[in-house]
Design a protein around this nucleic acid. Structure first.
Lengths: 232, 232
DNA sequence: CGCCCTTCTTGAACGCGTTCAAATAAGCTC
DNA sequence: GAGCTTATTTGAACGCGTTCAAGAAGGGCG
């Protein structure tokens, strides 16, 4: 009652469509149940019942159960960006910046490790719009890549001129690798994923530094050519 | 009628249990339908009907629809091994051996690209027994790793002593990466995956050679330590 | 208010993967 | 062959994600 119910702005388009509250209600309920019971054991009927709506109503807002996950991704991405801010403000060296951002990503996801693992498969399906490589995910993906662009741009590291434009996407790819490991990581608190980050970052740091060496120029170019070829 | 029906060997255990024919029939039917219609659009009812058995009978032999895929993996692995044999016989240099084996793997999978992509997600799920990292897949995984061990063992390449025992598994991991790319590869005939192999193999070759250099010893060790730590 | 159009909501129904108690066939021992 | 045990086969039934025809609720306009 205290909330405004679907006001219409002076402009033609409604600021918040009527169903926005219902949408959020369903989404919040779904996330809660996913966390409580896991993805597979949370039924659409249960989500609808707990949210106090009909099953079909959930499908009015979300095309499928999988689409609820896409919302989860979007939320996580925003959280990741926020969690990374202090690191970006504080650090100026490339290594610590990268490590901080990677750790921030894992930090954000940690509470969801249990159920994130169970629906990870959906994201891995190439034909799925949920794939991180898909057209439909291009917005959150680009946001993530931009985050790594900030890691590079704000650092004092000197990067090979040819490597520089490719680097953010490569770092994002490395992040996807970290996530892949994290999903499979059954160590307590996913401690091994932390070790992976702390072990891999110095290597990446060194690799980036080495790419400028005259001797390694041909190799650098060879790698970059390959990557450019393989990109769609 | 011309076939032997469930003979019993002199030893206690039956060479072919009675249901083996039914099992193979269901499996062959399933593979045919997967190829014809894709994984998702092939129903268990359709498999059973085409094979001329009841639905429940399929579940007597295969715990789930996903388990049919596991059989597909096992078959593919055997085919891969066979397809790699000529390369292993012919080549003695590390690079060509590795490239040949990787290409052989893709060769074997190519006819199934359409439906392999659609069920790839099941393999990616960490909790699934179908995951290439899972306990249940350890037999076919080990067979695959052994194949890469042959790539190394039979080659004239000199490999760093510390790297050598880890190398087969690392190459298998690289192969998994190739498969991951292949699954997402929509270029005609998956030509880009071929480019990936041809581009990556020289790099791997060079990296392996470099690992013996005294200057790079610390880095090599650092990488290997990290890998050992991360392995479960 | 009465009318119309859009947005939202409902729940029964469909097809799917999967389960399971019951029925049947096969082999073994006497 | 009779009886027993194990291996195999059946198909109805369950719960799930999803669809969709039907209706309810708003809001704009005369």
């Amino acid at each position: 009652m205290t909330e405004q119910t679907a006001p219409t702005t002076a402009a033609g388009e409604p600021a918040t469509p009527r169903g926005e509250q219902t949408r959020q209600l369903i989404l919040d309920t779904a996330m809660r149940l996913f966390r409580e019971r896991g993805y597979a054991r949370t039924t659409m009927r249960a989500i609808a019942q707990e949210a106090g709506v009909a099953v079909g109503n959930a499908y009015y807002y979300f095309g499928s159960k999988d689409h609820l996950i896409q919302e989860f991704y979007a939320r996580s991405q925003v959280e990741h960006r926020a969690a990374a801010q202090p690191v970006l403000d504080r650090e100026s060296d490339f290594g610590p910046r990268l490590a901080g951002v990677l750790h921030a990503g894992v930090d954000v996801l940690t509470p969801s490790h249990g159920f994130a693992a169970s629906f990870f498969k959906t994201a891995a399906e190439p034909t799925s719009p949920l794939s991180p490589f898909s057209e439909e995910s291009s917005a959150p993906r680009q946001a993530a890549i931009d985050l790594f662009a900030e890691v590079v741009a704000g650092s004092t590291a000197k990067v090979d001129a040819e490597l520089r434009p490719q680097l953010p996407e490569l770092l994002w790819l490395a992040y996807m690798g970290v996530i892949l490991y994290w999903v499979h990581d059954r160590s307590p608190g996913q401690a091994k994923t932390r070790q992976l980050i702390d072990g891999a970052v110095p290597l990446i740091d060194r690799l980036v530094a080495l790419s400028r060496l005259r001797v390694l120029r041909p190799v650098t170019r060879q790698v970059l050519d390959l990557i450019r070829t393989l990109r769609h």
